[in-house]
């Protein structure tokens, strides 16, 4: 029985250990700053997302859960369509033209997303 329990424990631990961390699919070695007007804004869970017309291309920017953004002063009106945002973050290694923002700056005010 001990043998089976150990086996079960190995399975249980091996799952998460082998998995990538949520930030693992973003390349932290190549941070980018995307600045431009907000084209679309989805203020939704599990993460708010923007599309932004950057200088090079159109980016999809993943932000934070809406409750966290709200707590930090970044309500839906702050990240509304048409406003200019500067987002610092890491490009996705999976999704094309997607990045996850570490922080965003709008009208001179910076909001941390982590």
């Amino acid at each position: 029985m001990t043998r089976y329990l150990l086996l079960a424990a190995v399975f249980a631990l091996a799952g998460p250990a082998a998995a990538h961390h949520g930030w693992g699919s973003y390349d932290a070695a190549k941070p980018v700053t995307v600045t431009g007007p907000i084209l679309t804004s989805k203020y939704e869970n599990p993460h708010a997302t923007l599309t932004v017309k950057g200088s090079d291309k159109e980016w999809t920017i993943t932000l934070a859960p809406t409750s966290r953004m709200g707590n930090r002063g970044a309500q839906a009106a702050v990240v509304a369509v048409g406003r200019t945002v500067s987002a610092y973050g890491y490009p996705s290694t999976v999704e094309k033209d997607e990045m996850r923002a570490e922080r965003i700056t709008i009208d001179g005010k910076t909001y941390e997303m982590r």
Binding site: K42, N45, P46, S67
Partner: peptide, 8 residues
């Protein structure tokens, strides 16, 4: 998705 609290 749009509720602040349902998903959480």
């Amino acid at each position: 998705r749009q509720s602040t609290w349902i998903y959480m």
